[in-house]
């Protein structure tokens, strides 16, 4: 089925230490999937390993039956905000225009139609009035929206976002999640690394809960159960619920 992402027995180690242990899951398209777990659980590592950006020890990954290398042009990846050099001499619109590069291929310059498309994507995240700003002149939420616009410009099938909601304002968060849901509704497969548990129920259809190894994968309501969450966090979630923290 198109859009199916399947991971089998994935192992990743870093400097001889196993940071992702035997993780397997499979999700279809039309799904918005959260990758959650405590700090240092290996969430970003898992995402990078699934995309074959870092070497894995073992494991089989397939995108609708194809290897990741065969579907690269259909993968939109949004890095953590801290991974970006915000002083790079580039404007907002040119950042979004990069999203057109994969489909352009070698030696071809973005055309007027590409620029128009980039502008349209910028409009979707309500950032068109900032088109000519340098990217460091934006707030955290605006920066994240610009990078989401770049991902939209890629017209990809698979979306991978690493911690898109860290340190951003409420309005930006709302815009971003509503766009991610629209992508899901139009048949895309969307993976989001996320660490704030408070909104997972309203954000994600499916969850991958890890703490180095897989704790649970499946529909959000099933994974979010206290007896499952306990295994990852070693905290008493029933108690937190009674206290009104509500996860």
């Amino acid at each position: 089925m198109t859009g199916t992402v399947s991971v089998k027995n994935l192992h990743v180690s870093y400097h001889g230490k196993e940071v992702v242990k035997n993780i397997s899951f499979e999700f279809n398209s039309h799904k918005l999937i959260g990758i959650i777990g405590p700090n240092g659980a290996g969430k970003s590592t898992l995402m990078k390993a699934v995309l074959n950006l870092i070497p894995k020890d073992k494991g089989k990954i397939s995108f609708a039956g194809d290897s990741v290398e065969q579907v690269r042009k259909n993968i939109a990846y949004v890095p953590q905000r801290s991974d970006i050099d915000w002083d790079f001499p580039i404007t907002v619109i040119d950042t979004v225009l990069i999203g057109r590069y994969p489909k352009l291929g070698l030696f071809r310059r973005p055309k007027k139609s590409d620029k128009a498309f980039a502008y349209k994507c910028l409009k979707q995240v309500n950032m068109e009035e900032f088109a000519d700003r340098q990217i460091a002149e934006l707030s955290g939420g605006q920066q994240q929206r610009v990078f989401l616009a770049r991902a939209l410009a890629q017209e990809a099938e698979y979306f991978f976002l690493d911690e898109p909601f860290v340190g951003i304002d409420v309005a930006s968060e709302k815009t971003i999640i509503s766009i991610l849901k629209k992508l899901r509704d139009s048949g895309k497969t969307v993976f989001v690394v996320h660490h704030d548990l408070t909104k997972v129920v309203s954000y994600f259809d499916e969850l991958i809960l890890i703490n180095k190894q897989l704790i649970g994968a499946g529909p959000t309501q099933e994974v979010i159960k206290p007896e499952v969450m306990n295994k990852a966090y070693n905290i008493d979630f029933d108690l937190l619920n009674q206290m009104g923290v509500g996860v």
Partner: peptide, 21 residues
């Protein structure tokens, strides 16, 4: 001139560049 695009994106966001191939 020929590889301007590729030089730009790999200097700016190497992981994204790698992700799209």
């Amino acid at each position: 001139v020929l590889f301007y695009k590729e030089l730009l994106v790999s200097s700016f966001d190497e992981t994204m560049a790698q992700a799209y191939g």
